[in-house]
């Protein structure tokens, strides 16, 4: 009796394990356009969400869930990726650096989402990561100015490029290494542990900026990097706006996750781009859709289109 029971339990375990294996390969039925579009999004604190919503012309949804279509699903970057391997009728968006072949990355306005197309500025669903400096001679001290100039040079090296790419953005191409140019910046050889450099601006860039300074501090005499990121608008205001730049919130380097406006004009040498942040709309591999426009995506996310067939009707 007991042996029979033991045998039964073993058999049961074996069968259930086999069942696990087979259930993973269920046959997929043909795509049904009358199904509801399941809309996946990041939560309101996400920089990717802000970039995506602004990119498709739906800025109201950057930090407000109530304007989104009813029944949306909130997931993180990986969560959206995994969801698109399961949900044949879902749509989501992820950072370009995380795209792989388990999901279908959609063309945007007819342009393939590739790094090359981001670099040649044809792929549209992206935003630039920009930096802005104070005017020459307008720093708390010469040491700060020298460190800032060394930092900007560092941003153009492949060392910084690796850090940017590892943090989900796409660095501008570079073949220069820090070691080959550091001799031009004698400040990097001094002990700067009593010098504080203030970084601010876009909070979307904060993670990348902090990773960059964390790598640069030991290369430049251990200066103190102070990060206070409040938004792209403060990149100009806190470095160059005469009314603000010399108050306690003033900054030495400001970052913006958009191009600078004409009202934010400074000298050419005071600003530049360090990276692109590209976002890709993704669907399940079985979805026949391959190309979307900003208008399509906005209509999906604001609930104008609720079925996949609504997209064909366009």
């Amino acid at each position: 009796m007991k042996k029979a029971l033991l045998a039964f339990v073993l058999l049961f375990t074996a069968v259930s394990l086999i069942a696990c294996g087979t259930s993973a390969t269920t046959t997929t039925e043909p795509f049904d356009g009358n199904m509801t579009i399941n809309v996946y999004t990041r939560d309101t604190t996400s920089g990717t969400r802000a970039g995506f919503m602004a990119g498709i012309g739906f800025a109201a949804a950057e930090t407000d869930d109530s304007v989104l279509v009813d029944g949306f699903i909130i997931k993180d970057n990986t969560g959206i990726m995994t969801a698109m391997t399961i949900d044949e009728y879902g749509i989501g968006y992820i950072s370009l650096s995380t795209v792989n072949n388990t999901i279908k990355a959609l063309y945007y306005d007819g342009v393939a989402p590739t790094e090359a197309n981001v670099m040649n500025d044809t792929y549209g669903l992206k935003r630039p990561f920009m930096w802005m400096l104070r005017a020459e001679g307008d720093y708390p001290s010469q040491d700060v100015e020298d460190i800032v100039n060394a930092f900007v040079a560092f941003l153009g090296t492949s060392d910084a490029g690796d850090i940017i790419n590892n943090n989900g953005a796409i660095a501008l191409p570079s073949t220069v290494t820090w070691d080959s140019i550091k001799s031009q910046y004698p400040i990097s050889l001094e002990d700067n542990s009593d010098v504080t450099v203030r970084f601010g601006g876009s909070d979307s860039i904060q993670k990348v900026a902090q990773a960059l300074t964390a790598a640069f501090v030991p290369k430049c005499g251990n200066f103190v990097a102070e990060h206070d990121h409040t938004g792209s608008g403060d990149a100009y205001k806190r470095t160059n706006d005469p009314a603000i730049k010399d108050t306690s919130v003033g900054k030495d380097v400001g970052f913006a996750s958009r191009f600078f406006k004409t009202t934010e004009s400074v000298l050419e040498a005071q600003r530049g781009q360090l990276a692109w942040d590209a976002i890709v709309a993704i669907v399940h591999l079985s979805n026949p859709l391959s190309d979307v426009t900003a208008a399509d995506l906005k209509a999906i996310y604001d609930g104008t289109f609720t079925k996949w067939s609504d997209l064909d009707a366009e």
Partner: peptide, 18 residues
């Protein structure tokens, strides 16, 4: 998630990706 998604599809209900 996959099991719940397939289960709900099988009973003719579209779940939110499980």
């Amino acid at each position: 998630l996959k099991l719940v998604y397939d289960f709900s599809m099988a009973i003719g209900y579209q779940s939110k990706g499980g």
